[in-house]
Design a protein around this nucleic acid. Structure first.
Lengths: 142, 142
DNA sequence: GCAAACTAGTCAGAACTTCTGACTATCATA
DNA sequence: TATGATAGTCAGAAGTTCTGACTAGTTTGC
């Protein structure tokens, strides 16, 4: 058992990355909360259903619906009918949402660059690769 | 920029580990919430101050105090005076708290074993090692 | 076809978590 | 010993998430 536990290490790394990106996006004038960003991040290019977003983000569909309401009101996403199923609606990123992504990406890349410089590019890439290979068993709703 | 992003990979790995351990601890009859467990995990052997717990868990000290109240009521921790500072009190794990830890540890180890088997022991150990080396810049309150 | 079971999403209400701001008690310092 | 800093709590509000019940639309099996 490593000390500190791998759990804490995963947690603090994720929290730091999330904090940096969210701070930057907010500083650029996009008013997003942590919970909103976690749903927003998981939107697929072609749009996602609420139920899928909920599973993917690990919250109930009521919660996902509530957060999508907020994102919609802020103009970051829109709901459109799902042509393949009249019960469902697709949540899609709007152009304003894409502007926020355009701010977030370079900040994320900057953090990765700092981490890679700190532990070495090779080890950083191995870290990302191993986590990606682990994903099938860590994220059943990938 | 990897796809999916490293942020999501860190998140899902942490969430899966946390879920497994928390499910197991609850199944053993210890009624703990996610927020409580996150504070509890960060207790030092000799006891921790509320302010330190708050910084380490990334919440305000009011929130940490509130969660410690709950943990105290459930019997997992106790508050004792800090001999070195009469303003402060130390939050310490009780014997009941230690029982919960005794349930959590093997579950955690089991998850690690599964992950190591899935990606290979060497890569798993590298993952843990790289995250540990990254910690100084991901966790200023280590 | 059509009734039964299932799925997508919402509504209502409660519980939990977290925050801001203000406050008391104690400590450190000059 | 006055001044500013620190540990922690209290009060109140906001944000997040849950359980349970519900409507509308889809799929399946007879």
């Amino acid at each position: 058992m490593p000390e500190p536990s791998l759990g804490i290490l995963l947690f603090v790394a994720h929290r730091e990355l999330e904090r940096r990106v969210l701070d930057g996006v907010r500083a650029a004038g996009f008013d997003v909360t942590l919970a909103q960003s976690r749903v927003f991040q998981r939107l697929d290019e072609g749009g996602s259903r609420i139920t899928h977003l909920a599973e993917s983000a690990g919250v109930t569909k009521q919660t996902a619906g509530y957060l999508v309401d907020q994102l919609e009101e802020a103009g970051f996403v829109e709901r459109v009918p799902d042509p393949s199923d009249a019960r469902a609606r697709l949540v899609r990123v709007t152009s304003r949402g894409r502007e926020a992504v355009a701010v977030a990406r370079p900040i994320e890349a900057q953090v990765y660059a700092e981490w890679a410089a700190y532990v070495g590019v090779r080890d950083f890439e191995r870290l990302a690769d191993t986590l990606a290979r682990l994903r099938p068993i860590t994220d059943p709703y990938a």
